[in-house]
Simulated scan of single mutants.
Amino acid sequence: MSKLRIHAFSISLDGYGAGPDQSLDNPLGRGGEALHEWFLPTRTFQRMSGKEQGTTGIDEDFAARGFDNIGAWILGRNMFGPVRGPWPDQSWRGWWGENPPYHCPVFVLTNHARPSLQMEGGTVFHFITDGIEAALARAREAADGRDVRLGGGSATVRQYLNARLVDEMHIAISPILLGSGEALFAGMDLPLLGYEVTEYVPSQKSTHIVVSRRA
């Protein structure tokens, strides 16, 4: 069976995956952009932005791994956009413009139905209203044997971890303090849930840790 994987999920030293006061103009919250300073210069990100140059090394290696053998994505609704409650219309089409970086089916968790959204480059957003397990089943079917990547945010990651559905999680700990925001592991006991650290690699801008579910 395909794996459910989390990659390049950046958190602060005090455990926050986004800063406080998230908004349309500040989707990562106050100070949240600094979480991703390790990722933004990498060749992987720069190519996603249409550029050819970018850094190589440890950070690039982890960034690139996140796209290897991925056939579908799952996102929490906040990762798709800032709209809350029922969709007022179909005008919001994501943060990324008409050609998002996914290039495969993406399943967005929401409480409010919306028709699927076809984008350029092979990305199709499907809006799933019947829970995390249904979204994973749909994503695995769409992935056709490849793995599924879970993009977040923090609340969505916690739901999948608590259900022991995540096979592998790469977190990048950035050397900053946010003080408040979206705490990734709030109220969780990862060892009790069957998770253990299987890889630990420091770089100049981050500490990369892989947590895997024990068989």
Rank of each mutant, 00 (worst) to 15 (best):
I11K: 01
A63L: 08
M79I: 04
M169R: 11
E98S: 12
V166H: 00
L4N: 02
A135Q: 11
Q90H: 10
F62Y: 09
I171V: 15
A34G: 03
P88W: 12
P105S: 06
G181P: 11
W87C: 02
T198V: 15
E141R: 05
A137Y: 03
V108Y: 03
I11V: 14
P202R: 11
E120D: 13
P20G: 08
P175T: 13
N111I: 01
L178W: 04
Q22A: 04
G121F: 08
N69W: 04
R140N: 12
Q53P: 00
L117F: 07
G54A: 11
V210P: 02
R214Q: 15
A142S: 14
R5F: 02
Q118T: 09
P27F: 05
M1S: 09
G66N: 02
E52I: 00
G131K: 11
G57N: 04
I132W: 01
I132T: 06
G19H: 03
G17M: 05
L150N: 11
G152Y: 12
E199P: 02
G97M: 03
S154T: 15
S206E: 12
M79K: 10
P191V: 11
I173P: 05
R47L: 01
L192E: 07
E196T: 14
G121P: 02
V83T: 15
L24S: 14
R149W: 04
L190K: 13
L136A: 07
F45K: 15
T156D: 13
D25I: 03
R146K: 15
T44L: 10
P82I: 04
A143F: 13
N99L: 00
Y160R: 10
I58V: 11
W73C: 09
S203T: 06
G85A: 08
I209T: 07
E120A: 05
A142I: 14
E182F: 06
A8K: 06
L184K: 15
V106F: 06
R77W: 03
W96D: 01
A155Y: 14
S116G: 01
P175F: 08
R77Q: 14
E37A: 07
